[in-house]
Amino acid sequence: MHEPARVLLVDDQPTNLKLLDATLSPRGYAVRTAASGEEALAVLAEGGTDLVLLDIVMPGIDGYEVCRRIRQDPATAFLPVVMVTASGEQQKIQALEAGADDFLTKPVDRAELLARVASLSRIKRYHDTIARQAAELSSWNRELEDRVQAQVGELERMAKLRRFLSPQLAELIVDSGDESFLDSHRREIVVVFCDLRGFTPFAEASEPEEVMGVLADYHQALGDLIFRFEGTLERFAGDGLMVFFNDPVPCADGALRAIRMSVAMRTRVQALAETWRRQGHDLALGIGIAQGYATLGKIGFDGRFDYAAIGSVTNLASRLCSDAEPWQILTTERVFAAAGPAVVGAHAGDRTLRGFSRSVRAFDIKGLDASAVAS
């Protein structure tokens, strides 16, 4: 049910105000009165008026001027105004020119008064509804713009994080808003390093576009597996690639997960190598895996950051990778033992690796025991 329309009666004659009030108040209209143009403008400035019945002839500011000022004020520009005229077409024309919506002729007919007020009150309600809906729509648009801006910011953050984190982890960071774990810290990790055997002579003898095509297939194949096993990608460097586990999100099965990913990488690149071989390219994959402590965190400069692991464990994985034969996965004894019975491998001898004073006992990963992995 609608609230009663609030009507302002403006006339310098108290008798006229009483007559109009006696007609409107019994019909449920909320009536206020003003005895001059100045008083009327003061009442309108307070707000809360839905319709004005305005006499023309008054001392001081007359009805025409009051109406013009009503139209000039943005707060009352659309307020319905009914001018009350004595007679004559000229007054009616002037009333319309001043901005009146309608007019009544004295003596005011009761039925005509009620009809005019009811009609214009209804129009005012429609206008108020449209104004309210427009304000709500504007508010919704601002809210939508804010949400879009926030989502764009999240997408930008997500794009940066996905350079080295799995999609699941990147989404977790964006949702929580917490990037503190990217700060420098120390943790034990399992590092996987791999590259292509025969890549250097291939790159020297091939066109750049051909090299880029091979790298695109290679990176796409391995990148999918890195995300699937939820590894952290430190970098792509040509045909070289480094991934680590147990940071920034801890995982109890880092060694096993690293080996499973490496076996899947070998299988997938072997399939690619068949295509490369038909194109005249002799390429194979070598992988090294090591476990140890490293310092990890965000490195770089404003506008370009990476997430890196610094420590001898990364060098050890790289050296094992370099020492591996084509299609061989070499791990340290520590990784092989930590991975458990699901891994099928054999002792590959003690290796003397560049940069390490002691020899490293290496193990050659043959594959996975499907029954042990399933259990």
Rank of each mutant, 00 (worst) to 15 (best):
Met1Ala: 13
His2Asn: 14
His2Arg: 12
His2Cys: 01
Pro4Ala: 11
Ala5Tyr: 04
Leu8Gln: 10
Asp11Trp: 05
Asp11Gln: 09
Asp12Pro: 07
Lys18Met: 13
Leu19Met: 13
Leu20Gly: 02
Pro26Cys: 09
Val31Gln: 05
Glu38Gly: 10
Glu39Gln: 15
Glu39Asp: 15
Glu39Gly: 07
Ala42Gly: 04
Asp50Ser: 07
Leu53Ala: 07
Leu54Glu: 07
Ile61Phe: 00
Tyr64Ala: 06
Thr76Trp: 04
Ala77Lys: 10
Pro80Ile: 10
Met83Ala: 15
Ala86Tyr: 00
Ser87Lys: 15
Gln90Asn: 12
Gln90Gly: 00
Lys92Tyr: 03
Ile93Glu: 13
Ile93Cys: 03
Gln94Trp: 08
Ala95Arg: 01
Glu97Lys: 14
Glu97Ser: 08
Gly99Thr: 09
Ala100His: 08
Asp101Lys: 02
Leu104Ile: 11
Asp109Pro: 03
Ala111Arg: 12
Leu113Lys: 02
Ile123Gly: 00
Ile123Val: 15
Arg125Leu: 15
Asp128Ile: 04
Ala131Cys: 12
Glu136Asp: 15
Ser139Tyr: 06
Leu144Ile: 12
Glu145Asn: 05
Glu145Met: 06
Asp146Ser: 10
Asp146Arg: 15
Arg147Asp: 01
Arg147Leu: 08
Ala150Cys: 00
Gly153Leu: 06
Gly153Met: 05
Glu154Asn: 15
Leu155Phe: 09
Arg157Cys: 10
Met158Cys: 03
Ala159Arg: 14
Lys160Thr: 13
Leu161Tyr: 12
Pro167Trp: 07
Gln168Phe: 03
Gln168Asp: 15
Leu169Glu: 01
Glu171Lys: 14
Ile173Gly: 00
Gly177Leu: 12
Ser180Glu: 10
Ser180Cys: 02
Val191Leu: 03
Leu196Asn: 04
Arg197Glu: 11
Glu207Arg: 13
Glu207Lys: 12
Glu209Asn: 06
Glu210Val: 14
Val214Asp: 01
Leu215Val: 10
Tyr218Arg: 08
Gly231Asp: 02
Gly231Arg: 01
Leu233Asp: 02
Asp239Cys: 05
Phe244Ala: 10
Gly254Arg: 05
Arg257Thr: 15
Arg257Tyr: 11
Arg260Val: 02
Arg260Ile: 01
Arg260Ser: 09
Val263Tyr: 02
Ala264Leu: 08
Arg266Phe: 04
Thr275Tyr: 01
Trp276His: 01
Gln279Lys: 13
Gly280Ala: 04
Leu283Phe: 07
Ala284Met: 07
Ile287Ser: 00
Gly292Phe: 05
Ala294Tyr: 00
Ala294Ile: 09
Leu296Cys: 14
Phe305Met: 10
Ala317His: 04
Ser318Lys: 03
Arg319Ala: 13
Gln328Ile: 05
Ile329Phe: 08
Leu330Pro: 04
Arg334Tyr: 09
Val335His: 06
Ala337Asp: 14
Val344His: 06
Gly345Pro: 02
Ala346Thr: 14
Ala346His: 11
Ala348Ser: 14
Asp350Cys: 07
Thr352Gly: 12
Gly355Asp: 11
Ser357Cys: 04
Arg358Leu: 09
Arg358Pro: 01
Ala362Asn: 06
Gly367Asp: 12
Leu368His: 05
Ala370Tyr: 00
Ala372Pro: 05
